Computed example of a mutant assay.
Amino acid sequence: MEHELIELRKHISSQGILVQDLMTGVCRELEEWKQSNGDNHEAQQDPEISEIQDPLPSERDDEKMIFLEHIDVLLAEHKVEEAIEALDAEEKNSPDLKGSGETSVGEVSQYKSAFLKRKATLEDQLVQIIEQPSVGVQEMKKALYGLIKLGKGPLAHQLLLTSYGLRLQKSIEVLLPSSHVCPKTFSATLSKLVFSIISLTTKESASIFGDNPIYTNRIVQWAEWDIEYFVRLVKENAPSSETVSALRAASICVQASLNYCSMLESQGLKLSKLLLVLLRPYIEEVLELNFRRARRLLFDLVELDESLLFSPHFESLLSAFGTISETIRVDSGMRFMYIVKVMLVPLFPFSMKCCKWRQTNRSRNQAILLV
């Protein structure tokens, strides 16, 4: 019995050694296979493992919270310039706001959302500053520069045009009552006001936004709208078209407006053609009605002379005073010359200005053709 137990132990021991050798061989083969075929797979999993094993440090979280609280304080105190500088620096330096870094996607989006929310609040504060009726020029410029720095250039330019448009509107409202007091000079005064605002706005746009074609085109469109508004006001507040006052007012208006258009050409705004196209119907109406009025006066003058010359009472006087007929003719001629003078004197500056403008355009076109 003991002999059988000894043999059984030897058999179990030999089987254990065999199993151990088999396991060692299998493990060695698995290790070699893993080394040859498993490197790429491990390399692909490394970023995910690293991302899971390397969470956002608590110190970085604290820095973000401190920064956001600092921005909240600046916004509450309306320190917009300091807030702009802080947001701009953080946006340039923070990898989280650039979409890179070692933080998780959830953490980045949460911080970026909070950052953009405060940035939008700052934009609203800058817009409110610009839209204040009593805002000064320098303060408005600072706010515009702030919007540009925040990447809101188109919005800043639109606010610039709106601000100067409102100023023009208020100035016109103050001027309108004088149209009945000084009808002859109202259009010239209005012309000076409108073109001065256009010139000032163009200069401010160039100094703040440069010569960007997008903003330049917006200035041109805005100026053209102002010209249309100006012509409409001239028509609505002008004297009656058949009066001499209307003729003088129209002449002064065209002369002054073309002078201002010539000045604006140095700033890149060519508005003369548009101005004349818009004013032409009004000018033609004034000229036509004044010519009709002058013609009626001449017909009345001729009828009066004929009635005097061929009346029986005049014939009896003619036999006694032969020079009376000559006196009447001289008087009629003087009145005729007065009517012509009344018509031509207001038109002389207007015609000279138009001729000069046409000559300038002709010379410019010839120069372009030669080039």
Rank of each mutant, 00 (worst) to 15 (best):
R167W: 06
S94Q: 07
P133R: 03
R280I: 00
F195T: 03
N217Y: 05
D300I: 00
A86C: 09
S251I: 04
S307P: 01
R364G: 04
E265Q: 11
V286A: 12
Q267W: 07
L8Y: 09
A294N: 10
G99F: 09
E123L: 09
E288N: 14
L271D: 03
S251A: 09
A43V: 03
H41T: 11
F321T: 01
T243D: 01
L318A: 15
D61T: 10
L155N: 06
E42H: 12
L68I: 14
F209K: 03
H78R: 07
N290R: 08
F209W: 01
I208W: 05
L271H: 01
D226Y: 12
F299H: 14
V194E: 09
T189H: 13
E63I: 06
D21A: 14
E4A: 13
L160G: 04
E91G: 06
C261G: 04
Q169K: 14
E131C: 08
E48W: 02
K98F: 03
R335I: 04
L279T: 02
V137Q: 12
V174I: 11
V345S: 10
C27R: 06
K142C: 10
H180Q: 12
C354K: 13
L275T: 00
A188Y: 00
L144M: 13
L97M: 07
K34S: 15
C27A: 15
T202I: 01
F350G: 01
W225H: 14
T360E: 12
S316I: 05
I328A: 00
F350Q: 10
L233C: 12
Q359W: 13
K270D: 10
K92P: 02
T185I: 07
S311R: 07
L18F: 04
A238F: 07
L193P: 02
H157S: 09
F348S: 13
L274G: 03
Y111K: 04
L200Q: 14
G38K: 03
L22R: 13
H70F: 11
H180W: 08
S50Y: 02
G210Q: 11
C355E: 12
F186K: 04
L258V: 10
P133M: 03
F299M: 15
R28L: 08
Q138H: 10
Q45R: 15
P57D: 07
Q267P: 00
K353S: 07
L161F: 11
